[in-house]
């Protein structure tokens, strides 16, 4: 890849303060092209805030975000989406009143011809196994299915980087296994950052894991190293990191 010297995503000294509360402090983060990264950490560690700063839903108090070397700090959400970053949010954001097909269709339609859009939409439905329920109204679907619809809208916009905030939440074991397979398959062509609490799920997909604690990065290493680390265990058991 010609741009291999430039990382896909780089965060430098990213800090987010809400009044007196510091949600993220001095986060330095690097992601290569087509990398798969898992973010873990206890509740309130600042993972979702970090995602919100990457996607323009929040403007960082300090620090910069670069996407392929281009400064995207403080850009509007829709502009960042156009650069090629897609996100599945923690609380599913789908078009509840529309059918599954229309959800995917609208996501695929931006800047594309009708023919292209239809092709991408039906390919995405097929890929996620949603073709059978394409005409169901999304608001009436089960939680796991709605999660997939949202992942579908993210895929249909064909982003270079996909952020998944708790993609396996509320899913049955079989659904989790399928989601893990899907993530590995997507990762063949696109970079992914996954936030997840489910350790089994992390073990299924992870190569490199970044651990957040109290708004900072605690450790970043191979999955086996991270999960064996005493500090990580302490954090998850609620003790203070040494």
């Amino acid at each position: 890849m010609s741009t291999s010297s430039v990382p896909l995503l780089e965060a430098k000294g990213l800090t987010m303060r809400f009044g007196g509360v510091t949600a993220n402090e001095d986060v330095n983060f690097l992601l290569r092209e087509v990398e798969l990264r898992c973010l873990i950490g206890p509740n309130g560690a600042g993972k979702s805030t970090f995602f919100k700063m990457l996607t323009g839903q929040l403007t960082p108090s300090e620090g910069k975000v670069f996407f392929r070397g281009q400064d995207i700090t403080g850009a509007k959400s829709h502009e960042i989406a156009r650069h090629g970053i897609g996100i599945k949010t923690q609380i599913p954001n789908v078009f509840n009143g529309l059918s599954v097909h229309e959800n995917i269709f609208v996501a695929a339609a931006r800047n594309k011809s009708m023919q292209q859009t239809k092709r991408i939409a039906s390919a995405t439905l097929e890929r996620l196994g949603l073709t059978g329920i394409a005409h169901r109204i999304v608001g009436q679907l089960a939680h796991g299915q709605r999660q997939w619809v949202e992942i579908g809208t993210v895929l249909a916009q064909e982003p270079e980087l996909i952020l998944l905030d708790e993609p396996a939440a509320g899913m049955t074991h079989e659904e989790i296994v399928r989601t893990a397979e899907l993530i590995r398959e997507i990762n063949k062509t696109q970079a992914i950052i996954v936030v997840e609490h489910d350790m089994q799920f992390i073990r299924m997909i992870a190569k490199t894991v970044t651990v957040f604690n109290q708004g900072r990065i605690l450790i970043e290493d191979d999955v086996d190293v991270v999960l064996a680390d005493q500090r990580v265990r302490d954090v998850y058991l609620g003790k203070q990191a040494a």
Binding site: S77, H78, A81, V94, A107, E150, Q157
Partner: peptide
Amino acid sequence: ENETRATLIGYD
């Protein structure tokens, strides 16, 4: 239906 989702897929 959902302004946030529309924004996150690139519509203003």
